[in-house]
Amino acid sequence: MNYDNIEILFVEDSTDDAILTIRALKKSGFTNKLHHLTDGAEALDFFYCKGIYSSRNSADLPKLILLDVKMPKVSGIQVLEKLKSDPQLRSIPVVMLTSSNEGPDVEKCFALGANSYIVKPVDSDNFFNAIKEIGLYWMILNQPPS
């Protein structure tokens, strides 16, 4: 499989949320090359070119990471911590996705350097709009350091 030129890296363990999120992104016109991973461990393999990603070019970085907070094995927060403490990777915008704003996750994510924190709305219209706006802001409006 070709892992080059991936623009949006989407890490989400829930198949349902993944289907709905990808559909919302596509419907909003973000046909940029998107890659979906299902857990944090795989995300770390991706960035550090391990396992099935051993042949990937490590200098080839996505423009945006959508990271679910609650995942089995390696959680989104652990992935975030790793990414934001790595000088090579810390400038990639990371949008945290979560099912609720309960618990201490919000403060923790921002303290670790998350660029945004989105509670996935239950209502499909709101959910669609939220995903569309994330794409719009981070892929088009946001100006990353060159």
Partner: peptide, 10 residues
């Protein structure tokens, strides 16, 4: 919050 919202969202 997490686990009830997710299936309803689906």
């Amino acid at each position: 919050s997490h686990d009830l919202r997710a299936p309803i969202r689906a």
